[in-house]
């Protein structure tokens, strides 16, 4: 059956994120002071899998092989 899976890829803790810093500064410029701001990228993917565990394994493989770069990223997988 088809499973919908939500994959979230973000920078590892401590990695410099110049874009997040720029956005944080822009928020401050219009009156929103922020303690921290993190950016993540979310993929919602639908595909055929044997069961929920199989769907999760496939999503993990997608992350390991292309969606995330292990040097700088962490990822989470959520079968919906």
């Amino acid at each position: 059956m088809n499973y919908q899976v939500r994959i979230t890829v973000a920078l590892k803790k401590g990695m410099l994120d110049p874009e997040a810093n720029a956005i944080s500064q822009a928020l401050a410029n219009i009156g929103f002071e922020t303690e921290s701001l993190k950016i993540a990228r979310q993929f919602t993917v639908t595909y055929e899998a044997g069961d929920g565990a199989d769907a999760e394994r496939k999503a993990t493989a997608m992350c390991e092989r292309i969606l995330a770069n292990p040097v700088i990223h962490t990822y989470t997988v959520e079968v919906l």
């Binding site: 410099l16 110049p18 874009e19 040097v71 700088i72």
Partner: peptide, 8 residues
Amino acid sequence: VFTVNAYP
């Protein structure tokens, strides 16, 4: 990896 410049 080559990623976004420190000043983006």
